[in-house]
Amino acid sequence: MLGHISKSIDKIVEKTPKQALYGFAALGSFYVLRSGFRVLSSFYRHVIRRPLDFPSRYGKGSWALVTGGANGIGKAWSQELAKLGFNILIIDFDWEAANQAKETIELNYKVVVEMLILDLSDQDNIANVGKFIEENNLDISILVNNAGAHKMAPVKDMPNEDIMKLINTNVIAMTLLTRLLLPKLLERKQRSAIINMSSVSAHIGFPYSTVYAATKSYIRIFSASLREEIKEKIDVLVVSPEGVSTNMTKKPVGGDIVRPEDCVIGALKELGRRIETFGAPRHTWNGWKNSFFSDATRSERTERYLRKYFINK
């Protein structure tokens, strides 16, 4: 069978003009070199290259506002930015978790941590964020829009209130809070940063998380468009990780599930340099691999991924 196929290929090659064969060879060589460059570039960015000097870039002693900053990826953002010397404003609805994060960060990193306990899915609370910042005279230099809601269910089975919860938390709160802080960020003498947490689900169809994936797609496009408006003064980064071990995913670290710290540390290496990152090196590698597959194959891989990590458990 293999011999027959080989002979058929030989006949096709013999009948193909040499110019066409040279063209195919050149195209193949270019594709291989391009792929190799992407692998080496990714290795350099995530393993060798160090992050920028953020205190000098955004202002030493300034503040980072982290929504959902008491747990999971948000807590990792709070800790890693505090480690760099930024004071932290945690916005979360969980007072106990926020207070614990505050005590841990202040003890370990010797920065000031403020807490604002409210639910960002309620649009009326956005104005309270602005009042708190003004009353406490906080120089916010970094905004991390991390707070998010997730719900797995077929769209036909989702109650309207669950759909609105996803949209209000993932889309409306992020948009309105960004709009609220933009004037102050643009007025600062030094640069500022806006970091928006999206998801790998924004890149591909994600069955049973349809509304969630759609909200994360909004975040990607919003971030890319906003960057073109404000890039002279503000760095914008959108982070689109795969599985991260958090209270929301309820998955242990292993395989494609990474620690929140890995996601944040990887993302920080891209802040001020690129518009989007998958975060952890593992997820960046997976994103590079997935770029080779067709839409149909990616859909099948997504289905297997969901069943492996969520649906069957």
Rank of each mutant, 00 (worst) to 15 (best):
H4K: 08
I9F: 06
I12N: 00
V13F: 03
K15R: 15
K15I: 03
K18G: 02
A20S: 06
L21C: 02
L21Q: 11
L21H: 02
F24E: 06
L27Q: 09
Y31D: 15
V32E: 04
L33N: 10
R34L: 06
G36T: 15
S41F: 03
S41D: 10
F43E: 01
F43Y: 13
Y44V: 14
R45L: 12
H46Q: 13
L52C: 02
F54M: 01
R57I: 01
Y58D: 00
Y58T: 00
G61L: 00
G68I: 00
G68T: 01
G68F: 00
G69R: 02
G72K: 08
G74I: 14
A76E: 07
W77T: 07
W77K: 03
Q79V: 15
L84F: 04
L84V: 09
G85W: 07
F86R: 14
F86V: 13
L89I: 12
N99T: 12
N99C: 11
Q100P: 07
A101G: 08
E103F: 08
I105T: 05
E106R: 06
N108A: 06
V111L: 06
V111M: 07
V112E: 09
M115L: 09
L116A: 00
I117E: 00
I117M: 00
D119E: 13
Q123D: 14
N125C: 05
I126P: 03
I126F: 06
I126R: 05
A127Y: 05
A127N: 09
N128A: 15
N128H: 08
V129T: 07
K131N: 11
K131G: 02
L138H: 02
D139G: 12
S141D: 11
I142M: 11
I142H: 11
A147H: 07
A149T: 13
K151Q: 15
M152K: 10
M158L: 11
N160H: 06
N160K: 07
E161S: 13
K165L: 10
K165M: 09
K165A: 10
L166F: 06
I167T: 10
N170H: 10
I172Q: 07
A173Y: 05
T178G: 04
L181K: 10
E187K: 11
R191H: 04
S192H: 12
I195Q: 06
M197F: 15
V200W: 09
G205S: 06
G205D: 08
F206C: 04
V211C: 00
A214G: 13
I219E: 01
I221H: 04
R227T: 01
I230G: 01
E232Q: 09
I234H: 03
D235E: 04
V236Q: 07
V238M: 07
P241W: 05
N247K: 14
M248D: 09
K251I: 09
G254S: 02
G254T: 04
G254H: 01
V258D: 02
R259S: 09
C263D: 04
I265Q: 10
I265M: 05
A267S: 12
L268G: 03
K269P: 07
E270S: 05
G272W: 04
E276T: 10
G279Y: 11
G279V: 12
P281L: 12
R282F: 15
W285K: 15
W285V: 15
W288Q: 14
K289V: 13
K289G: 03
S294A: 12
A296S: 11
R298P: 04
S299N: 14
E300T: 14
R304W: 14
Y305H: 13
R307E: 14
Y309D: 13
Y309G: 11
F310N: 14
I311R: 12
N312E: 10
K313Y: 05
